[in-house]
Amino acid sequence: MSIDLETARKVANLARIKVDEDRLPAMAESFNTILGFIEELNEVDIEGVEPMVSVMPMRLKRRKDVVTDGGYPEKIMANAPDAREGFFAVPKVVE
């Protein structure tokens, strides 16, 4: 797989990261280097090997269905650039 300029532009846009046009070629090249490195892993034969999801043999931790958190709107809103009447206020997003 190889990343061209168009793909690099698209990925940047999807990630909402602004990348100037003149920096795109370098970014595409970085992607390709990374992917090339990962592709080396394809050489390993993993036929019949279970995917390892955790280094430690752990079970997914579970919680009981009990309300133990929340109730601190002022903390939730503390970093909001704009808050009004208890809501986060953001530029209008409407379909």
Partner: peptide, 27 residues
């Protein structure tokens, strides 16, 4: 129909004051 959210301990109750049923995980 649970009391708490899928991945946090905040309440699911409908009609609460805005942003009061929010844990740091949810935010």
């Amino acid at each position: 129909a649970s009391n708490a959210k899928l991945f946090s301990g905040a309440s699911t109750k409908f009609g609460a004051e805005p942003n009061s049923n929010v844990a740091f995980v949810d935010a």
